[in-house]
Design a protein around this nucleic acid. Structure first.
Lengths: 191, 191
DNA sequence: CTCAAAAAGTGCAACCACTACACTTTTGAA
DNA sequence: TTCAAAAGTGTAGTGGTTGCACTTTTTGAG
């Protein structure tokens, strides 16, 4: 256990109150119609302080990051008999279903999807995991750590999420897209 | 032939002189160390005018766009017996080789690759073609225009370029990556 | 307990990309 | 020749972001 001193507790607290204020205001009035100044005021903090905690306005909405990466690596490493693409597919489907519970998350997701700056930032954060995922895949298949095919599969799997999220029936879409990665384009339909 | 009046010629000329000034300054001192003001001054134009010709600072470096898209569609449509992934692979390899001649382009490419803002912008511009490419693929294979697999293949092919461009031996990398799209992950190496 | 140093927070001024606006100049065509 | 559209200009602003000098709080060592 990591014992947190008063200082670090307070720091975490201000950070959280900033993030909460931002989320609330953004959901209320949209990303572009809320200024950083207003967020800082709402959180009762100076603008300078806000930027000491978050590197950009967009970052106010994307807090969790390392968990996702380790989850991805874990999925690749610990998959019970399934192929890597199938394990990843299950992971994404499961994640989507897990979020479907909280209606709060749907709203958040729509905000991100409908705000170009946020969508882009989210994508950038997401694809940061490419290298880690590629290394995990390489390690798992005995390929060299910088193998091209592993890098490609990592990239494709990461981007597959975006392709799938735009579709109404996500489970079906996931099947088709990851099926493509699993069996290849030339598998069944066309030349 | 499209006859261009004096007006349109002059407009094109100022646009070009802006782009040229920008390219020269950026190559000289880097994207982040050159202000828009300086570019405008160098091109002997006001900042307002600069932004009437280009929507953003990044856009100063990415002029050609529609040609690439139509080229992609053309490649899919008019491929002599090759499968779609293979046709796209050849297209990318050929494009890379074509640029390899001009050493000027290598420098430009390094600038883009090493400047996060530019790399990102370039990627965004590039993936704009996804829909058009997906539709072309769908049409070519008789699938519905919004078929998921076609959308996925389009996206993957577009992203493949980035994966490949980072590698030293691009031809070989292209073979491996597009081979993956052609035959699928489960093709030869691992489960 | 004391005190000095580290860290968190503050306010201000500035930078930079970008826009709105009101304006002048140039140009194409009737 | 005349007139309206289009290109260009300068100014003043907005909004995100940073640098700086400063105060306050917290910590740990003596």
């Amino acid at each position: 256990m990591t014992e947190l001193g008063r200082r670090e507790r307070k720091k975490l607290q201000t950070r959280q109150s900033i993030a909460e204020a931002a989320l609330r205001l953004f959901l209320d009035r949209g990303f572009d119609d809320v200024g950083v100044k207003e967020i800082a005021d709402t959180a009762d903090v100076s603008v300078t302080t806000l930027f000491k905690h978050f590197p950009s306005k967009e970052a106010l909405l994307f807090d969790e990051d390392e968990e996702q990466e380790s989850a991805l690596v874990e999925v690749v490493r610990n998959r019970e008999g399934r192929s890597i693409p199938m394990a990843l597919r299950d992971h994404f489907v499961q994640a989507a279903e897990g979020h479907a519970d909280h209606p709060q998350f749907e709203v958040f997701q729509r905000l991100v999807l409908e705000t170009p700056a946020l969508r882009e930032y989210g994508h950038r954060m997401w694809t940061r995991h490419q290298d880690a995922l590629a290394r995990a895949i390489a390690e798992e298949t005995g390929a060299p750590p910088d193998d091209v095919r592993c890098a490609a599969l990592a990239r494709f799997a990461l981007d597959a999420r975006d392709v799938i999220f735009d579709r109404p029936d996500r489970a079906r879409a996931a099947d088709e897209v990851f099926g493509l990665l699993e069996h290849g384009w030339a598998g069944d339909r066309q030349r």
